[in-house]
């Protein structure tokens, strides 16, 4: 009892001593509690309830039934999940590869490098809805630029319905997403490249190392932490990237190009199935959380 009282006193003293620090942190904590934690907790709670406001506005606790429905009876959930993996893995990897190449180029002493660095940021600062609409027009099967130029240069003979064929729709969505997202990767990687001491490259050059060896033995290992974080941020960003797919296909026809983020929106705000929508959102959140923890542990990026 006495020990508890002493401990309490100790914490009180400590809190008083650091009161300024706590006060500075307080707004952020309150903000997170209201706009981060509460909606998240509310969404998780909702996922254990039946709530379709077209049927009844009162939530009814049903345990794991929403999850059971998603995993066993929902005709589209696993297709949507597979689409999400294709979308996230494909989009993030392509963005990193293209961003890496652009960063290597912009790290060299080129004439007009500053201008190129500015131009490279254009996709990043262009609103995603505008990018989506522009790509839809480019890929239009009847009057889009893609078909026009490919046919003009003799690469295709007939116009292709890029967003309407199974074998072309995902490559095209990934192309649009890569164009939009590579510049962020490029900026991050470029920042990493600029922290590498030139002495290392000079020493490697004196030792007669080839460009290949320099890249794999110096550049890549030294920017690995930045690359790891960039990949993680990029993949979470893409995981939640609702707008690009929504603008280009609305997740359709049917659910054929839906990903988890569009599926949450459709289920919740189009079909008013709040309980099932919350279950999809919670599953999506947990998947990203577990993936991030494993990824961080594996890459040791937290160090």
């Amino acid at each position: 009892m006495r020990k508890n009282a002493e401990l309490l006193l100790h914490w009180k003293k400590k809190a008083y001593r650091h009161r300024a620090a706590y006060l500075f942190v307080l707004p952020a904590v309150v903000y997170f509690a209201i706009f981060g934690f509460y909606p998240l907790a509310s969404s998780v709670w909702l996922s254990f309830n039946r709530l379709n406001i077209l049927i009844s506005p009162v939530p009814q606790f049903i345990g794991l039934q929403n999850y059971w429905y998603l995993f066993t009876r929902d005709h589209h959930f696993w297709l949507v999940f597979k689409n999400t993996l294709v979308w996230v893995v494909g989009s993030t990897l392509l963005q990193v590869v293209v961003g890496f190449l652009a960063a290597l180029l912009l790290n060299k002493k080129l004439r007009g490098r500053t201008i190129f660095r500015g131009i490279m940021l254009v996709p990043w600062v262009t609103p995603i809805v505008v990018v989506g609409i522009a790509w839809r027009w480019i890929l239009d099967p009847h009057w889009g630029l893609m078909n026009y130029y490919l046919q003009r240069f003799g690469i295709i003979s007939d116009y292709i319905v890029w967003l309407g064929r199974d074998d072309t729709v995902w490559p095209m969505l990934l192309l649009a997403s890569t164009w939009k997202g590579y510049s962020y990767m490029c900026v991050m990687i470029l920042a990493g490249l600029q922290t590498i001491s030139k002495d290392l490259y000079e020493a490697a050059s004196v030792e007669g190392a080839s460009s290949f060896h320099t890249f794999f033995k110096i550049t890549l290992p030294l920017i690995r932490p930045i690359l790891a974080i960039t990949l993680l941020v990029g993949s979470i960003e893409t995981w939640n990237n609702f707008r690009m797919i929504w603008v280009m296909t609305e997740g359709g026809p049917g659910y054929s190009t839906s990903v988890l983020s569009t599926y949450v929106f459709t289920k919740t705000f189009r079909e008013y199935q709040f309980g099932r929508g919350a279950a999809v959102a919670t599953f999506s959140f947990l998947f990203v959380l577990i993936f991030s923890l494993i990824y961080l542990k594996y890459t040791k990026a937290e160090e």
């Binding site: 359709g252 459709t266 079909e271």
Partner: peptide, 20 residues
């Protein structure tokens, strides 16, 4: 239709598969 949005999506998805 109360479930209009759901019917629309189901129908259009199946019809696209059928027409393809």
């Amino acid at each position: 239709l109360l479930a209009g949005e759901r019917l629309e999506r189901e129908f259009t998805g199946i019809i696209n598969d059928y027409m393809a």
